[in-house]
Simulated assay, not measured.
Amino acid sequence: MNIHQLSARYIEEQDRILVRINTSEGSEMRLWFTRRLTLALWPTLNKAVVEHIARQDSFTAHLHDEASKKMLADFQREAVLKSADFSTPYQDQDAEASVTLPLGTAPLLVTEVRITPVASGPLKIAFNEQLPEQKSPRGFQVELAPPLVHGLVQLLEQALAQSAWTQVSEVQEALGRSTGSAAAEDRPKYLN
């Protein structure tokens, strides 16, 4: 599968991120990322990218320092994103009659993501949908070269910013901490 374009967009009405993968062969895969999945996937995806980049660079393959690995990945990401084309609109396959939708018209509701580094360079990512009412799971996998991995991470980061899910999580976490300490202070005190 030769990936032509990637798109990740927060859809407010669904409160989900719609990821679309457009191939050179005229196929399109559509994926729904829920809040729960995305917030769990985000740190794992970033860590996988950092580890994968560090393993591929022979000069830094011996590095065990996480900060150095992250700095290398950030440097490579910046270089890739400078040459990436984020200005060309996503080619909407809906308008074309020749488009094939191997997963069907309904986007895949991603319930599981498996990330596997491949020694030859790409990062293999499997997207699966396993719902209780389904007799057989739906899914597919792609191999993303480092430039596409960095592009996907960038698009997901932008969609995450639009969703404000990380801000909500931070507020909920702060409220949990403050209400937990306030609850202890608000309890009645008894003197014997």
Rank of each mutant, 00 (worst) to 15 (best):
Q134G: 05
L6P: 01
A164I: 00
P89A: 13
T88V: 08
Q91C: 09
E28L: 09
G151R: 15
E96R: 10
E185H: 10
P137N: 06
E12Q: 13
L123V: 01
R138Q: 10
P43E: 02
L156C: 06
D15A: 15
L148M: 13
I11M: 07
L108I: 03
S7L: 13
E129C: 09
A183Q: 12
N22H: 15
T88Y: 06
L81C: 04
S27H: 12
G139I: 04
D65H: 05
S181Q: 14
L37I: 04
P89V: 08
V99P: 00
D15P: 05
L160N: 01
L63C: 04
F140H: 02
R30Q: 11
A159M: 06
K69N: 03
K47A: 12
P132V: 09
L152E: 01
I125Q: 04
A67G: 02
E129Y: 08
I125G: 04
S163P: 03
A61L: 08
A145K: 07
N22D: 13
R36N: 11
N46L: 15
E133S: 15
R77T: 05
L155K: 07
D94R: 14
P137W: 08
E78Y: 12
L108E: 01
L45T: 00
P188M: 07
S181I: 14
P107R: 01
F86T: 03
P146D: 03
G26Q: 04
N2S: 13
L103N: 07
S136A: 15
G151I: 09
E66H: 09
A119N: 07
L101I: 00
E143G: 12
Q158K: 15
H150R: 03
V142I: 15
V168Q: 13
E133T: 12
G139F: 06
K82Q: 14
W32M: 04
E28C: 11
I3H: 01
L41C: 04
G151N: 12
S163K: 03
S178I: 11
L81A: 02
R9I: 13
P117W: 05
Q93P: 07
A67C: 01
A73V: 01
Q172W: 04
E173Q: 15
Q5E: 09
T105S: 13
P117R: 08
V113Q: 02
A174S: 11
L123K: 02
P146W: 02
P122D: 05
H64D: 14
D57N: 15
